[in-house]
Design a protein around this nucleic acid. Sequence first.
DNA 1: GCATGTGAAGTTGTATGCAATGTCTTGACG
DNA 2: CGTCAAGACATTGCATACAACTTCACATGC
Lengths: 233, 233
Amino acid sequence: MSTVNSTPSDAPSRDAAARAVPDRDVSAYGQVRAMIASGELAAGAWLRETTLADRIGVSRTPIREALNRLAAEGLVDLSRNKGAQVVDFSTEDVAGLYDVRSGFEPHAVRLSVPHLTDDDVAELASLSVRMEAVVANGGDMDGLSALNAAFHGIFIERCGNRHVATALQAVMRPAVVAHTFRKYSEAALRRSMQHHAELVAAADARDGEWAEAVMRTHILAARNAAGDAPSPR
Amino acid sequence: MSTVNSTPSDAPSRDAAARAVPDRDVSAYGQVRAMIASGELAAGAWLRETTLADRIGVSRTPIREALNRLAAEGLVDLSRNKGAQVVDFSTEDVAGLYDVRSGFEPHAVRLSVPHLTDDDVAELASLSVRMEAVVANGGDMDGLSALNAAFHGIFIERCGNRHVATALQAVMRPAVVAHTFRKYSEAALRRSMQHHAELVAAADARDGEWAEAVMRTHILAARNAAGDAPSPR
DNA sequence: GCATGTGAAGTTGTATGCAATGTCTTGACG
DNA sequence: CGTCAAGACATTGCATACAACTTCACATGC
Protein backbone atom coordinates (compact mmCIF):
# COMPACT_ATOMS: atom_id res chain seq x y z
CA MET A 1 0.00 0.00 0.00
CA SER A 2 1.09 3.50 -0.51
CA THR A 3 -0.68 6.41 1.09
CA VAL A 4 -3.20 5.67 3.79
CA ASN A 5 -3.80 2.96 6.34
CA SER A 6 -0.44 1.39 6.86
CA THR A 7 -0.98 0.66 10.52
CA PRO A 8 -2.62 -2.67 11.26
CA SER A 9 -4.99 -1.20 13.82
CA ASP A 10 -7.27 0.82 11.59
CA ALA A 11 -7.68 -1.60 8.74
CA PRO A 12 -10.96 -0.84 6.96
CA SER A 13 -13.41 -3.67 7.20
CA ARG A 14 -13.26 -4.50 3.53
CA ASP A 15 -9.55 -5.12 3.63
CA ALA A 16 -10.16 -7.88 6.11
CA ALA A 17 -12.07 -9.79 3.47
CA ALA A 18 -10.04 -8.81 0.44
CA ARG A 19 -6.70 -9.60 2.04
CA ALA A 20 -4.84 -12.84 1.66
CA VAL A 21 -6.79 -15.93 2.49
CA PRO A 22 -9.90 -15.17 4.49
CA ASP A 23 -9.49 -17.56 7.39
CA ARG A 24 -13.23 -17.76 7.93
CA ASP A 25 -14.46 -14.21 8.02
CA VAL A 26 -16.91 -13.85 10.86
CA SER A 27 -18.53 -10.65 9.63
CA ALA A 28 -21.99 -10.90 8.16
CA TYR A 29 -20.55 -9.82 4.85
CA GLY A 30 -17.90 -12.51 4.96
CA GLN A 31 -20.37 -15.21 5.86
CA VAL A 32 -22.87 -14.32 3.15
CA ARG A 33 -20.09 -14.09 0.65
CA ALA A 34 -18.74 -17.46 1.74
CA MET A 35 -22.18 -18.98 1.28
CA ILE A 36 -22.27 -17.65 -2.24
CA ALA A 37 -18.72 -18.76 -3.00
CA SER A 38 -19.40 -22.27 -1.73
CA GLY A 39 -22.52 -22.59 -3.82
CA GLU A 40 -24.66 -22.98 -0.72
CA LEU A 41 -26.56 -20.04 -2.14
CA ALA A 42 -26.96 -20.87 -5.80
CA ALA A 43 -27.04 -18.41 -8.67
CA GLY A 44 -30.42 -16.77 -8.94
CA ALA A 45 -31.41 -17.67 -5.39
CA TRP A 46 -33.25 -15.01 -3.41
CA LEU A 47 -31.48 -13.71 -0.35
CA ARG A 48 -34.10 -13.04 2.30
CA GLU A 49 -32.85 -10.71 4.99
CA THR A 50 -34.60 -12.43 7.87
CA THR A 51 -33.54 -15.87 6.70
CA LEU A 52 -29.89 -14.86 6.49
CA ALA A 53 -30.13 -13.00 9.79
CA ASP A 54 -31.44 -16.09 11.55
CA ARG A 55 -28.93 -18.39 9.94
CA ILE A 56 -25.93 -16.19 10.78
CA GLY A 57 -27.25 -15.14 14.15
CA VAL A 58 -27.37 -11.37 13.83
CA SER A 59 -30.11 -8.86 13.17
CA ARG A 60 -31.19 -7.64 9.77
CA THR A 61 -29.07 -4.51 9.96
CA PRO A 62 -25.63 -6.06 9.31
CA ILE A 63 -27.23 -8.35 6.75
CA ARG A 64 -28.53 -5.34 4.87
CA GLU A 65 -25.10 -3.77 4.91
CA ALA A 66 -23.59 -6.98 3.61
CA LEU A 67 -26.12 -7.19 0.79
CA ASN A 68 -25.54 -3.58 -0.18
CA ARG A 69 -21.84 -4.15 -0.33
CA LEU A 70 -22.19 -7.36 -2.29
CA ALA A 71 -24.44 -5.50 -4.71
CA ALA A 72 -21.88 -2.74 -5.11
CA GLU A 73 -19.32 -5.44 -5.84
CA GLY A 74 -21.57 -7.03 -8.42
CA LEU A 75 -22.03 -10.33 -6.59
CA VAL A 76 -25.75 -9.91 -6.01
CA ASP A 77 -28.50 -8.04 -7.80
CA LEU A 78 -30.69 -5.72 -5.77
CA SER A 79 -34.25 -4.85 -6.71
CA ARG A 80 -35.87 -2.17 -4.62
CA ASN A 81 -38.56 -3.49 -2.29
CA LYS A 82 -38.07 -6.93 -3.73
CA GLY A 83 -34.77 -8.11 -2.37
CA ALA A 84 -31.43 -9.46 -3.49
CA GLN A 85 -30.54 -12.47 -5.54
CA VAL A 86 -27.23 -14.08 -6.35
CA VAL A 87 -25.98 -12.97 -9.74
CA ASP A 88 -26.19 -15.49 -12.52
CA PHE A 89 -23.09 -15.57 -14.66
CA SER A 90 -23.75 -16.32 -18.26
CA THR A 91 -21.03 -17.78 -20.41
CA GLU A 92 -20.62 -14.41 -22.08
CA ASP A 93 -20.22 -12.74 -18.71
CA VAL A 94 -17.36 -15.03 -17.78
CA ALA A 95 -15.74 -14.60 -21.18
CA GLY A 96 -15.99 -10.84 -20.84
CA LEU A 97 -14.33 -10.93 -17.47
CA TYR A 98 -11.42 -12.89 -18.86
CA ASP A 99 -11.14 -10.38 -21.67
CA VAL A 100 -10.86 -7.56 -19.19
CA ARG A 101 -8.43 -9.45 -17.01
CA SER A 102 -6.24 -10.39 -19.93
CA GLY A 103 -5.96 -6.72 -20.73
CA PHE A 104 -5.32 -5.43 -17.24
CA GLU A 105 -3.94 -7.95 -14.87
CA PRO A 106 -0.66 -8.56 -16.71
CA HIS A 107 -0.09 -4.82 -16.64
CA ALA A 108 -0.86 -4.70 -12.94
CA VAL A 109 1.56 -7.54 -12.34
CA ARG A 110 4.38 -5.77 -14.10
CA LEU A 111 3.75 -2.70 -11.96
CA SER A 112 3.53 -4.66 -8.74
CA VAL A 113 6.52 -6.97 -8.98
CA PRO A 114 9.10 -4.26 -8.21
CA HIS A 115 7.12 -3.35 -5.09
CA LEU A 116 6.89 -6.85 -3.68
CA THR A 117 8.57 -7.47 -0.35
CA ASP A 118 10.26 -10.72 0.56
CA ASP A 119 7.26 -11.48 2.73
CA ASP A 120 4.95 -10.98 -0.23
CA VAL A 121 6.95 -13.42 -2.31
CA ALA A 122 6.98 -15.89 0.55
CA GLU A 123 3.21 -15.66 0.81
CA LEU A 124 2.84 -16.12 -2.93
CA ALA A 125 5.00 -19.23 -2.70
CA SER A 126 2.98 -20.53 0.22
CA LEU A 127 -0.29 -20.01 -1.60
CA SER A 128 1.09 -21.68 -4.70
CA VAL A 129 2.16 -24.74 -2.70
CA ARG A 130 -1.17 -24.95 -0.93
CA MET A 131 -3.02 -24.78 -4.22
CA GLU A 132 -0.91 -27.58 -5.63
CA ALA A 133 -1.70 -29.63 -2.55
CA VAL A 134 -5.42 -29.12 -3.06
CA VAL A 135 -5.13 -30.21 -6.67
CA ALA A 136 -2.98 -33.22 -5.74
CA ASN A 137 -5.59 -34.34 -3.22
CA GLY A 138 -8.32 -33.86 -5.77
CA GLY A 139 -9.91 -31.57 -3.24
CA ASP A 140 -12.29 -28.77 -2.76
CA MET A 141 -12.48 -26.53 -5.81
CA ASP A 142 -14.09 -23.67 -3.93
CA GLY A 143 -11.28 -23.59 -1.41
CA LEU A 144 -8.97 -23.52 -4.39
CA SER A 145 -10.83 -20.48 -5.71
CA ALA A 146 -10.26 -18.68 -2.43
CA LEU A 147 -6.55 -19.43 -2.47
CA ASN A 148 -6.36 -18.38 -6.10
CA ALA A 149 -8.13 -15.11 -5.36
CA ALA A 150 -5.66 -14.45 -2.56
CA PHE A 151 -2.74 -15.21 -4.87
CA HIS A 152 -3.90 -12.83 -7.57
CA GLY A 153 -4.96 -10.31 -4.96
CA ILE A 154 -1.42 -9.88 -3.74
CA PHE A 155 -0.26 -8.66 -7.12
CA ILE A 156 -3.22 -6.35 -7.47
CA GLU A 157 -2.85 -4.82 -4.04
CA ARG A 158 0.79 -4.09 -4.63
CA CYS A 159 0.35 -2.48 -8.04
CA GLY A 160 1.21 0.89 -6.54
CA ASN A 161 -2.06 2.73 -6.97
CA ARG A 162 -4.88 2.13 -4.58
CA HIS A 163 -7.61 3.23 -6.95
CA VAL A 164 -6.31 1.06 -9.72
CA ALA A 165 -6.24 -1.75 -7.18
CA THR A 166 -9.85 -1.07 -6.27
CA ALA A 167 -10.90 -1.11 -9.89
CA LEU A 168 -9.04 -4.33 -10.58
CA GLN A 169 -10.53 -5.96 -7.52
CA ALA A 170 -13.89 -5.13 -9.04
CA VAL A 171 -12.92 -7.19 -12.05
CA MET A 172 -11.53 -10.05 -10.02
CA ARG A 173 -14.27 -10.48 -7.46
CA PRO A 174 -16.90 -12.07 -9.67
CA ALA A 175 -14.50 -14.91 -10.36
CA VAL A 176 -15.08 -16.07 -6.81
CA VAL A 177 -18.70 -16.84 -7.48
CA ALA A 178 -18.34 -18.08 -11.04
CA HIS A 179 -16.97 -21.46 -9.89
CA THR A 180 -14.70 -21.57 -12.89
CA PHE A 181 -12.33 -24.18 -11.48
CA ARG A 182 -15.14 -26.70 -11.50
CA LYS A 183 -15.06 -26.65 -15.28
CA TYR A 184 -11.32 -27.24 -15.54
CA SER A 185 -9.96 -30.46 -16.93
CA GLU A 186 -7.27 -32.27 -15.01
CA ALA A 187 -4.63 -31.07 -17.46
CA ALA A 188 -5.84 -27.50 -17.37
CA LEU A 189 -5.72 -27.50 -13.58
CA ARG A 190 -2.18 -28.81 -13.60
CA ARG A 191 -1.12 -26.21 -16.15
CA SER A 192 -2.71 -23.48 -14.11
CA MET A 193 -0.74 -24.54 -11.06
CA GLN A 194 2.46 -24.51 -13.09
CA HIS A 195 1.74 -20.94 -14.10
CA HIS A 196 1.40 -20.04 -10.45
CA ALA A 197 4.76 -21.60 -9.67
CA GLU A 198 6.36 -19.73 -12.53
CA LEU A 199 4.79 -16.50 -11.34
CA VAL A 200 6.39 -17.08 -7.97
CA ALA A 201 9.73 -17.60 -9.67
CA ALA A 202 9.38 -14.42 -11.70
CA ALA A 203 8.29 -12.50 -8.64
CA ASP A 204 11.21 -13.87 -6.66
CA ALA A 205 13.52 -12.68 -9.42
CA ARG A 206 11.71 -9.34 -9.37
CA ASP A 207 11.36 -9.63 -13.13
CA GLY A 208 8.23 -7.68 -13.96
CA GLU A 209 8.28 -8.43 -17.67
CA TRP A 210 8.61 -12.15 -17.10
CA ALA A 211 5.78 -12.10 -14.58
CA GLU A 212 3.64 -10.07 -16.95
CA ALA A 213 4.13 -12.58 -19.73
CA VAL A 214 3.33 -15.51 -17.49
CA MET A 215 0.23 -13.82 -16.20
CA ARG A 216 -1.04 -13.14 -19.69
CA THR A 217 -0.45 -16.77 -20.56
CA HIS A 218 -2.18 -17.82 -17.37
CA ILE A 219 -5.31 -15.82 -18.05
CA LEU A 220 -5.65 -16.75 -21.69
CA ALA A 221 -5.24 -20.39 -20.76
CA ALA A 222 -7.85 -19.95 -18.07
CA ARG A 223 -10.29 -18.41 -20.50
CA ASN A 224 -10.04 -21.56 -22.55
CA ALA A 225 -10.11 -23.92 -19.61
CA ALA A 226 -13.27 -22.30 -18.30
CA GLY A 227 -14.94 -23.60 -21.41
CA ASP A 228 -15.12 -20.46 -23.46
CA ALA A 229 -13.77 -19.93 -26.90
CA PRO A 230 -11.86 -16.70 -27.38
CA SER A 231 -14.42 -13.99 -27.84
CA PRO A 232 -14.32 -12.33 -31.27
CA ARG A 233 -12.76 -8.90 -31.18
CA MET B 1 -27.35 -6.77 -21.88
CA SER B 2 -27.75 -10.46 -21.67
CA THR B 3 -29.39 -12.45 -18.94
CA VAL B 4 -31.07 -10.71 -16.06
CA ASN B 5 -32.97 -7.49 -15.62
CA SER B 6 -34.08 -6.68 -19.09
CA THR B 7 -37.44 -5.28 -17.99
CA PRO B 8 -37.44 -1.62 -17.08
CA SER B 9 -39.60 -2.16 -14.01
CA ASP B 10 -37.09 -3.82 -11.75
CA ALA B 11 -34.12 -1.58 -12.34
CA PRO B 12 -31.69 -1.91 -9.42
CA SER B 13 -31.33 1.25 -7.40
CA ARG B 14 -27.76 1.88 -8.44
CA ASP B 15 -28.69 2.15 -12.07
CA ALA B 16 -30.70 5.20 -11.20
CA ALA B 17 -27.54 6.99 -10.20
CA ALA B 18 -25.21 5.53 -12.79
CA ARG B 19 -27.52 6.20 -15.71
CA ALA B 20 -27.35 9.22 -17.97
CA VAL B 21 -27.33 12.56 -16.26
CA PRO B 22 -28.53 12.34 -12.69
CA ASP B 23 -31.17 15.07 -12.61
CA ARG B 24 -30.64 15.68 -8.92
CA ASP B 25 -30.73 12.29 -7.30
CA VAL B 26 -32.87 12.51 -4.19
CA SER B 27 -31.54 9.34 -2.55
CA ALA B 28 -29.20 9.74 0.39
CA TYR B 29 -26.48 8.16 -1.70
CA GLY B 30 -27.03 10.60 -4.52
CA GLN B 31 -27.02 13.59 -2.22
CA VAL B 32 -23.86 12.64 -0.39
CA ARG B 33 -22.19 11.86 -3.66
CA ALA B 34 -23.28 15.21 -5.05
CA MET B 35 -21.83 16.95 -2.01
CA ILE B 36 -18.53 15.24 -2.65
CA ALA B 37 -18.61 15.94 -6.37
CA SER B 38 -19.35 19.60 -5.82
CA GLY B 39 -16.50 19.95 -3.37
CA GLU B 40 -18.90 20.89 -0.59
CA LEU B 41 -17.31 17.97 1.22
CA ALA B 42 -13.62 18.39 0.61
CA ALA B 43 -11.06 15.62 0.26
CA GLY B 44 -10.07 14.28 3.64
CA ALA B 45 -13.14 15.67 5.37
CA TRP B 46 -14.78 13.43 7.93
CA LEU B 47 -18.31 12.36 7.12
CA ARG B 48 -20.25 12.27 10.38
CA GLU B 49 -23.36 10.18 10.09
CA THR B 50 -25.54 12.36 12.30
CA THR B 51 -24.38 15.53 10.58
CA LEU B 52 -25.19 14.17 7.14
CA ALA B 53 -28.47 12.75 8.39
CA ASP B 54 -29.54 16.13 9.73
CA ARG B 55 -28.43 17.99 6.64
CA ILE B 56 -30.21 15.65 4.23
CA GLY B 57 -33.22 15.14 6.45
CA VAL B 58 -33.19 11.39 6.91
CA SER B 59 -32.09 9.07 9.68
CA ARG B 60 -28.67 7.55 10.02
CA THR B 61 -29.72 4.28 8.39
CA PRO B 62 -29.83 5.43 4.75
CA ILE B 63 -26.73 7.53 5.39
CA ARG B 64 -24.86 4.46 6.49
CA GLU B 65 -25.98 2.59 3.39
CA ALA B 66 -24.79 5.47 1.26
CA LEU B 67 -21.40 5.56 2.96
CA ASN B 68 -20.98 1.83 2.57
CA ARG B 69 -21.73 2.06 -1.09
CA LEU B 70 -19.44 5.02 -1.59
CA ALA B 71 -16.71 3.08 0.18
CA ALA B 72 -17.22 0.09 -2.07
CA GLU B 73 -16.93 2.45 -5.02
CA GLY B 74 -13.74 3.90 -3.66
CA LEU B 75 -15.05 7.42 -3.13
CA VAL B 76 -14.73 7.41 0.65
CA ASP B 77 -12.50 5.59 3.10
CA LEU B 78 -14.12 3.71 5.94
CA SER B 79 -12.37 3.03 9.22
CA ARG B 80 -14.21 0.78 11.60
CA ASN B 81 -15.59 2.59 14.64
CA LYS B 82 -14.02 5.80 13.38
CA GLY B 83 -16.09 6.84 10.43
CA ALA B 84 -15.73 7.76 6.80
CA GLN B 85 -13.70 10.42 5.08
CA VAL B 86 -13.64 11.65 1.52
CA VAL B 87 -10.81 10.06 -0.41
CA ASP B 88 -7.91 12.25 -1.30
CA PHE B 89 -6.74 11.73 -4.85
CA SER B 90 -3.05 12.22 -5.24
CA THR B 91 -1.59 13.14 -8.60
CA GLU B 92 -0.30 9.59 -8.94
CA ASP B 93 -3.74 8.20 -8.22
CA VAL B 94 -5.28 10.21 -11.04
CA ALA B 95 -2.48 9.31 -13.40
CA GLY B 96 -2.92 5.64 -12.63
CA LEU B 97 -6.60 5.80 -13.34
CA TYR B 98 -5.96 7.43 -16.69
CA ASP B 99 -3.51 4.66 -17.45
CA VAL B 100 -6.16 2.08 -16.78
CA ARG B 101 -8.76 3.97 -18.74
CA SER B 102 -6.47 4.40 -21.71
CA GLY B 103 -6.08 0.65 -21.77
CA PHE B 104 -9.72 -0.28 -21.45
CA GLU B 105 -12.15 2.38 -22.39
CA PRO B 106 -11.19 2.52 -26.08
CA HIS B 107 -11.73 -1.21 -26.22
CA ALA B 108 -15.11 -0.86 -24.54
CA VAL B 109 -16.06 1.84 -27.00
CA ARG B 110 -15.27 -0.35 -29.96
CA LEU B 111 -17.44 -3.07 -28.51
CA SER B 112 -20.31 -0.73 -27.70
CA VAL B 113 -20.63 1.26 -30.92
CA PRO B 114 -22.31 -1.53 -32.87
CA HIS B 115 -24.88 -1.87 -30.10
CA LEU B 116 -25.83 1.79 -29.94
CA THR B 117 -29.41 2.66 -30.79
CA ASP B 118 -30.41 5.84 -32.55
CA ASP B 119 -31.65 7.10 -29.22
CA ASP B 120 -28.26 6.46 -27.68
CA VAL B 121 -26.54 8.45 -30.39
CA ALA B 122 -29.05 11.24 -29.98
CA GLU B 123 -28.36 11.35 -26.27
CA LEU B 124 -24.62 11.40 -26.90
CA ALA B 125 -25.11 14.31 -29.25
CA SER B 126 -27.26 16.12 -26.74
CA LEU B 127 -24.72 15.67 -23.98
CA SER B 128 -21.93 16.82 -26.27
CA VAL B 129 -23.84 19.99 -27.15
CA ARG B 130 -24.66 20.70 -23.53
CA MET B 131 -21.02 20.29 -22.55
CA GLU B 132 -19.94 22.71 -25.25
CA ALA B 133 -22.51 25.17 -23.95
CA VAL B 134 -21.11 24.92 -20.44
CA VAL B 135 -17.61 25.54 -21.74
CA ALA B 136 -18.75 28.43 -23.91
CA ASN B 137 -20.40 30.07 -20.91
CA GLY B 138 -17.28 29.52 -18.87
CA GLY B 139 -19.51 27.69 -16.45
CA ASP B 140 -19.64 25.19 -13.72
CA MET B 141 -16.88 22.64 -14.05
CA ASP B 142 -18.52 20.16 -11.71
CA GLY B 143 -21.68 20.16 -13.77
CA LEU B 144 -19.44 19.51 -16.72
CA SER B 145 -17.98 16.51 -14.92
CA ALA B 146 -21.45 15.08 -14.44
CA LEU B 147 -22.31 15.50 -18.11
CA ASN B 148 -18.98 14.01 -19.08
CA ALA B 149 -19.54 11.02 -16.82
CA ALA B 150 -22.93 10.49 -18.42
CA PHE B 151 -21.40 10.72 -21.89
CA HIS B 152 -18.74 8.13 -21.19
CA GLY B 153 -21.22 6.06 -19.24
CA ILE B 154 -23.35 5.47 -22.31
CA PHE B 155 -20.51 3.78 -24.12
CA ILE B 156 -19.60 1.72 -21.11
CA GLU B 157 -23.12 0.54 -20.42
CA ARG B 158 -23.59 -0.57 -24.00
CA CYS B 159 -20.35 -2.51 -24.24
CA GLY B 160 -22.29 -5.76 -24.18
CA ASN B 161 -21.11 -7.30 -20.93
CA ARG B 162 -22.55 -6.18 -17.66
CA HIS B 163 -19.53 -7.17 -15.60
CA VAL B 164 -17.16 -5.41 -17.91
CA ALA B 165 -19.43 -2.40 -17.54
CA THR B 166 -19.35 -2.66 -13.77
CA ALA B 167 -15.59 -2.88 -13.74
CA LEU B 168 -15.18 0.10 -16.03
CA GLN B 169 -17.63 2.14 -14.00
CA ALA B 170 -15.36 1.46 -11.06
CA VAL B 171 -12.51 3.08 -12.94
CA MET B 172 -14.62 5.99 -14.12
CA ARG B 173 -16.29 6.96 -10.88
CA PRO B 174 -13.34 8.53 -9.12
CA ALA B 175 -13.05 11.04 -11.94
CA VAL B 176 -16.23 12.63 -10.66
CA VAL B 177 -14.67 13.53 -7.35
CA ALA B 178 -11.17 14.26 -8.61
CA HIS B 179 -12.30 17.58 -10.11
CA THR B 180 -10.01 17.05 -13.06
CA PHE B 181 -11.73 19.58 -15.30
CA ARG B 182 -10.73 22.33 -12.90
CA LYS B 183 -7.14 21.77 -13.88
CA TYR B 184 -7.77 22.01 -17.62
CA SER B 185 -6.46 24.90 -19.64
CA GLU B 186 -8.82 26.73 -21.96
CA ALA B 187 -7.25 25.02 -24.97
CA ALA B 188 -7.39 21.59 -23.37
CA LEU B 189 -11.05 22.04 -22.57
CA ARG B 190 -11.84 23.04 -26.12
CA ARG B 191 -9.91 20.07 -27.46
CA SER B 192 -11.71 17.74 -25.14
CA MET B 193 -15.06 19.02 -26.40
CA GLN B 194 -13.92 18.48 -29.97
CA HIS B 195 -13.11 14.88 -29.11
CA HIS B 196 -16.62 14.45 -27.80
CA ALA B 197 -18.10 15.82 -31.01
CA GLU B 198 -15.94 13.49 -33.04
CA LEU B 199 -16.99 10.56 -30.88
CA VAL B 200 -20.60 11.41 -31.67
CA ALA B 201 -19.77 11.44 -35.36
CA ALA B 202 -18.02 8.09 -35.17
CA ALA B 203 -20.89 6.64 -33.15
CA ASP B 204 -23.41 8.00 -35.63
CA ALA B 205 -21.46 6.31 -38.40
CA ARG B 206 -21.37 3.13 -36.28
CA ASP B 207 -17.64 3.01 -36.91
CA GLY B 208 -16.22 1.24 -33.87
CA GLU B 209 -12.60 1.51 -34.89
CA TRP B 210 -12.88 5.24 -35.48
CA ALA B 211 -14.56 5.73 -32.14
CA GLU B 212 -11.93 3.61 -30.44
CA ALA B 213 -9.14 5.72 -31.89
CA VAL B 214 -10.81 8.96 -30.88
CA MET B 215 -11.41 7.70 -27.38
CA ARG B 216 -7.78 6.71 -26.96
CA THR B 217 -6.75 10.16 -28.13
CA HIS B 218 -9.27 11.71 -25.81
CA ILE B 219 -8.02 9.91 -22.73
CA LEU B 220 -4.35 10.42 -23.41
CA ALA B 221 -4.98 14.11 -23.97
CA ALA B 222 -6.95 14.19 -20.74
CA ARG B 223 -4.13 12.58 -18.84
CA ASN B 224 -1.94 15.43 -19.94
CA ALA B 225 -4.51 18.13 -19.40
CA ALA B 226 -5.11 16.96 -15.86
CA GLY B 227 -1.56 18.02 -15.18
CA ASP B 228 0.20 14.70 -15.24
CA ALA B 229 3.09 13.61 -17.32
CA PRO B 230 2.73 10.16 -18.85
CA SER B 231 3.59 7.69 -16.15
CA PRO B 232 6.71 5.64 -16.86
CA ARG B 233 6.06 2.04 -17.75
C1' DG C 1 8.50 18.65 32.12
C1' DC C 2 6.97 14.26 30.43
C1' DA C 3 4.71 10.05 30.41
C1' DT C 4 0.74 7.50 31.85
C1' DG C 5 -3.76 6.32 33.55
C1' DT C 6 -8.61 7.55 34.04
C1' DG C 7 -12.85 9.58 32.94
C1' DA C 8 -16.28 11.69 29.95
C1' DA C 9 -17.94 12.87 25.52
C1' DG C 10 -18.71 11.67 20.98
C1' DT C 11 -19.21 8.35 17.22
C1' DT C 12 -20.09 4.14 15.16
C1' DG C 13 -22.24 -0.84 15.34
C1' DT C 14 -26.35 -3.44 16.19
C1' DA C 15 -31.12 -4.55 17.40
C1' DT C 16 -35.86 -3.74 17.07
C1' DG C 17 -40.38 -1.59 15.78
C1' DC C 18 -43.28 0.38 12.39
C1' DA C 19 -44.66 1.98 7.79
C1' DA C 20 -44.62 1.23 2.79
C1' DT C 21 -44.36 -1.69 -0.98
C1' DG C 22 -44.76 -5.97 -3.52
C1' DT C 23 -46.75 -10.68 -4.09
C1' DC C 24 -49.86 -14.31 -3.82
C1' DT C 25 -54.20 -16.42 -2.80
C1' DT C 26 -59.03 -16.48 -2.88
C1' DG C 27 -63.34 -15.26 -4.24
C1' DA C 28 -66.81 -13.18 -7.25
C1' DC C 29 -68.34 -11.97 -11.70
C1' DG C 30 -68.76 -12.20 -16.70
C1' DC D 1 -64.10 -21.84 -17.34
C1' DG D 2 -61.38 -17.68 -17.55
C1' DT D 3 -60.45 -13.05 -15.80
C1' DC D 4 -60.07 -9.63 -12.58
C1' DA D 5 -60.25 -7.53 -8.08
C1' DA D 6 -59.65 -7.31 -3.17
C1' DG D 7 -57.51 -8.63 0.86
C1' DA D 8 -54.05 -11.11 3.57
C1' DC D 9 -49.33 -12.19 3.84
C1' DA D 10 -44.52 -11.50 3.28
C1' DT D 11 -40.59 -8.59 2.62
C1' DT D 12 -38.04 -4.52 2.34
C1' DG D 13 -37.12 0.67 3.76
C1' DC D 14 -36.58 3.75 7.39
C1' DA D 15 -36.46 5.57 12.17
C1' DT D 16 -35.16 5.14 16.75
C1' DA D 17 -32.93 3.22 21.00
C1' DC D 18 -29.21 1.17 23.11
C1' DA D 19 -24.46 -0.98 23.38
C1' DA D 20 -19.52 -0.92 22.20
C1' DC D 21 -15.68 1.35 20.88
C1' DT D 22 -12.51 5.27 20.09
C1' DT D 23 -10.66 9.60 21.22
C1' DC D 24 -9.59 13.56 23.68
C1' DA D 25 -8.85 16.12 27.95
C1' DC D 26 -7.27 16.28 32.36
C1' DA D 27 -5.24 14.97 36.38
C1' DT D 28 -1.68 12.30 38.64
C1' DG D 29 2.83 10.29 39.46
C1' DC D 30 7.62 10.08 38.19
